[in-house]
Every structure is written in structure tokens, then in C-alpha cells.
Computed example of a mutant assay.
Amino acid sequence: MIWTWTILLFLTIIFGFFAFVGYKMVTPPRRVGKWTPKDLGFDYEKVEFKSRDGITLRGWWIDQGKDETVIVLHGYTASKWNEVYMKPAIEIVANLGYNVLTFDFRAHGESEGSKTTIGDKEILDLSGAIDWLLSNTNTKKIALIGFSMGAMVTIRALAEDERVCCGIADSPPIYIDKTGARGLKYFANLPEFLYPIIKPFTKMFSGAKEVNIIDYADKVRKPLLIIAGGNDPLVKVEEVEEFYKRNKTINPRIEVWITDAAHVRTIVKYKEEWKRKVGEFLRANL
């Protein structure tokens, strides 16, 4: 009998640990910083709007008096305050003269919501942002720049939202399970082979549906620039190239730029080239 109870206790502890990890994976820490677009030399307005499913989202609006707006989208566990890629991206786009909108996805930064769905319901967040833009500003053309999870949302929007004219996807996860397993090691320092055990808990806590961006390779027909890094521990270049080759058969306006950078780090390692390529892309398509 004592062995039975010992085994039950052991299993309870093990599955409790897996449940805890799954819960933590969908409840990222809220990154809140102190800098604002004012520190970059741009006047801005704090804005608040609703996601399509009613969650309050909070962001920044830089109005440059244009009818062209670029929405900059952060990645998983980050926020609009991210200094690695969001800050330089906002600065570059604003210096190009475009209006800029950025905001915190649900369960990130200062937006409401308790769980991230890593690309599923975040599309509703973006839809709410676009609703706000078209109702409250002079915006007529909208481009997206997304990083990691934000890149997933960018690609989805190009296929699903007619209001978006073009997009740049930097380090987009193509297969959610492959990136999820790598992310377990990257974010939690746990072995990748545990992912199939932890995954059901993440789905249970978040209520999310799986989003595999490879499925959109047959749907996107708008200008798209994908940026990928050869030293990315989360997204393999081969996966990005697979998406590119499939989408190229129906979308002549897709481009891919491969560097030797790490995840969402091309803008850090090759800032001037990132600025040039992104500028050229936006001028040509926005």
C-alpha cells in the first residue's frame, strides 16, 4: 500500500510540475518599461481600444499627418517597450515618415487579458487595432511589421484582413509544435522532448487553437517580406524557406532575406541594412 501511495504522490508531483510549466508558458511576465516615442524625438498619444472579443488593449500612436500607417507588432513575452527590436523598429519607421501604431497584445505589457494564445486570438487584437485606426485617424493604407509571434499575426492578417496591404514578418514561427518544443528549452531551460506532455496543459489553460503558419503559404497573395536568421534557436531557416517556396508559386510579391542573426536580432546586427530593405519595401508597397 505504501508503494502505491508513493507512486501516486510521485505522479501527482510530476504532472503538477508539467501543469505549472504549461500555465507559465501561457502567462508571460508583463514587460513594462520607461521609455516612450518621445525619447526618440516623436510626439505620441497613449491610446486604448478593444480587441474584437472585448479585451482592452493599450498602445502608442505616432501621428505624422499621413494617410499611411505602419503597425509594429511585438513577440511572445515582449511588449511595446521591448528595447531590442521594438524600439529601433519604431524609430526607423517613424523616421521614414509614416504614422506608427504599436500596442501590447493580450496578456502582455499593460493590456488586459490573462493568457496569451501565441498567434490564435492575437489576430483579434490586431483587428481591433485596425478598427480603431480607421475610425479615429486619417489612415487609408496599412502595413504591418511583426516580430516572432507578431510575425505570425502579420502573415495571418495578409491572408485574412483585406484592410492590410502589405507586411514584413521578422522571425516568424512556421510550425508551432517545432518552435514550441524549442521554446521550452529557450524560455524554460527544459528538454524539448517534454513538449508533447506540456502542450495539452498550455492548450487547456489558454483555450487556444493551434496556428501553423505553413498553412498560410497557400493563402497569402499580398506583398510580404520575410526576415530570418541562420542562428535562430526557435525558427529554422529551412522552415522559412519552405514557406517562401510554397507561397512563391501563388504570390510573386513575396521576398525573403536570410541573415546569420539570432531570433529577431537582424535589426540589431544589421540595423542599416534592415532600415534600407524595410524602407524600400514600404515605399514600393505602401
Rank of each mutant, 00 (worst) to 15 (best):
Q64T: 01
A78Q: 13
A107P: 11
T117Y: 05
K50T: 08
K50A: 11
Y85R: 03
F49A: 07
T117P: 04
K38D: 13
P37Q: 09
V84H: 13
T27D: 01
D104M: 10
D63N: 15
D125Q: 10
S127I: 12
A78T: 03
K66L: 03
V70Y: 02
F42I: 06
G75W: 09
G119F: 08
T56S: 14
Y23P: 02
L124A: 01
G109T: 03
K34W: 01
A94F: 05
I14A: 14
A78V: 00
W61F: 15
G59V: 07
K50W: 00
I123K: 13
Y23K: 14
D39C: 01
E112F: 05
K24L: 13
Y44K: 04
E112K: 13
Y98A: 04
K87A: 06
H74G: 05
M25W: 11
K46N: 14
L96F: 09
K115L: 12
M86G: 02
D104H: 05
I55H: 08
M86R: 06
P37K: 09
A78K: 13
I55L: 14
K115N: 13
M86C: 04
R106P: 05
Y44G: 07
G97D: 05
R52P: 00
Y76T: 08
L124F: 08
D104R: 07
V100H: 03
G22Y: 12
K87C: 02
D63E: 11
F42D: 09
I14N: 00
G54W: 13
K115P: 00
V72T: 10
W35V: 09
N95V: 03
G109V: 04
K34T: 15
R30S: 01
P29E: 14
H108L: 12
